[in-house]
Amino acid sequence: MNHAIEIKDLTKKYGQILALKSITLNVPVGTIYGLIGPNGAGKTTLIKALVGAVKPSSGHLNVLGMNPINDKWALRQKIGYMPQSAALYEDLSAKQNILFFGKAQKIENLNQKTDEVLQFVELTDRANDLVRNFSGGMKKRVSLCCALIHSPEILFLDEPTAAIDPHLKLQSWNLFRKLANSGVTLFISTHLMDEAMHCDKVTILMNGEIIAVDTPQKIIESGKTVLTIKDNGVITTRTIASTPEGLANELLKLGLRASITEISATPDTIENIVLNIIKKNQIH
């Protein structure tokens, strides 16, 4: 078993609302696993079920070989959870917040560890400022620190990059990759389809159901590429498969001639492809 997370037939009902319908998926250790879906897809519910904050209506959950409800105390030492909302104390400083959540676990050199995580998210110079005065993106980073402080084996991040500017977003994903490289498993939800690119594997969730599971490369390959060719000054376009073979085949058919002065290939963005998959499922 090299799965950090195993989910089998997980269903969650809130009264009449079926928030999760028979979800089955596995997450290998040390990967960045993306959970993509529109608002209300059930991302938060799934993450909360995995951290033991939501009781499943039926199905089996296994996180690091443990049950999130029955083995909660043992499990809580090994997982980090960053909720969708900032979930910080506004009247405390960034450092005080991290220390408070850190003190729930036995951590050696907590003070030093706090400084390290603050440095990791580049907030060292604001460490002692009240969270009340922070921007949304800065709060997200403090929140991440609180989830990281006890060096968990799995990190559950619920929309960690929502409302964060593009520069910082890229930085965050670099940070997540650094963590994954050190052996941490990351389970990250997002409603931004283009962020799928940064994951090792993504699950697309809609209306509580999984509608696709794949690597970002495979998802891109399922889309189309538009090839624009300028031959003898005449511009033509054709649509081909977004696979490397697709491009090679097309070029072979064309045969390279001196009259072809320009070739450009524009593959579908992952955002479009995911949106198309979601749209297709809405029709059915």
Partner: peptide
């Protein structure tokens, strides 16, 4: 409402 209660519980309090 802020979610800190949930965070405390999942964090090990």
């Amino acid at each position: 409402t802020k979610g800190t209660l949930e965070r405390m519980l999942i964090g090990g309090y």
